[in-house]
Simulated scan of single mutants.
Amino acid sequence: MNRSDQILTVALEHFADKSYEGASLSGIALQVGIKKASIYNHFNHKEELFLSVAKHVYRLYINEIERTLANHHHLASKEKIFIITETMTDFLSNEEEGKFYMHFLLFPPLHLKDKVHEQFLQFEHECDQLLSPIFEEIASTYEISHLSLRDLLDAFYCLLDGITSQMFYYHPDIALRKRQTSLALFWTGVINTD
């Protein structure tokens, strides 16, 4: 791992645990084992480091989706949706990446809100590109013409957000039960709507 990646990894932990305001470049540098001034060799200021961490988390998330799709390309669309839902909600409920993603997506630092939102829209566009073929296959296989691709993706993202929130609140066994039930009802609703 190169120095920039080390800084990003430690900064992710600090931002997730201490918030944007609570995280300090001094604390990050100390944990990395460098002087605070050395951070500036890689990132111009705290805002740039934060936005780089956000981009890093998005990239980790996209990589996880790509890996899951590559490993399960042979499955039918229903099984793909179930597995990708598990992958995405497991990632988002991960202690550091998930905490960072869920907190700063909903409550970014005010002065970085527009930049965080811009990054998120780019990330969602990448997710759309990865997931669209699955939902196109579902629409074709089950002759779903009354819902657009955008409708299906929007409903799916809302499902993911809801499941992920539940995974933070409940004991893992209860959260997994809720995930399975929600996903089964989502599937039934999509397939059986008129």
Rank of each mutant, 00 (worst) to 15 (best):
F156I: 06
F104N: 00
K46Q: 02
S24Y: 03
A11G: 03
I163E: 04
A11Q: 09
M88G: 02
I28Q: 01
V53Q: 05
Y40D: 05
T141H: 13
A23L: 04
S145C: 05
E66V: 13
T89G: 00
I138D: 03
D161P: 00
S4Q: 15
A139Q: 15
R177S: 12
R67L: 13
Y58V: 00
G98D: 09
G98H: 02
A184Q: 12
R67H: 08
L51W: 06
E118K: 15
T68H: 01
L152F: 03
L92I: 00
I62G: 04
H45L: 05
Y169F: 15
D5N: 13
P108C: 08
L12V: 13
S145H: 15
L49P: 06
L149K: 14
Y61V: 01
F15S: 07
E21S: 15
T188F: 03
P109L: 09
M102W: 04
V57L: 10
E126Y: 05
D151T: 07
I34E: 03
L60E: 11
H117Y: 12
A175V: 09
E137R: 06
V116I: 14
D154F: 14
L25Y: 11
L12R: 13
I138M: 13
H72M: 02
Y101V: 00
I84P: 01
N44M: 06
L30R: 08
Y142G: 08
D114C: 01
R150E: 10
R179E: 13
E48D: 11
K78F: 09
S77R: 01
F15Y: 13
L25Q: 14
Q31E: 15
L160T: 08
P109M: 12
E48M: 10
Y169T: 09
Q166S: 13
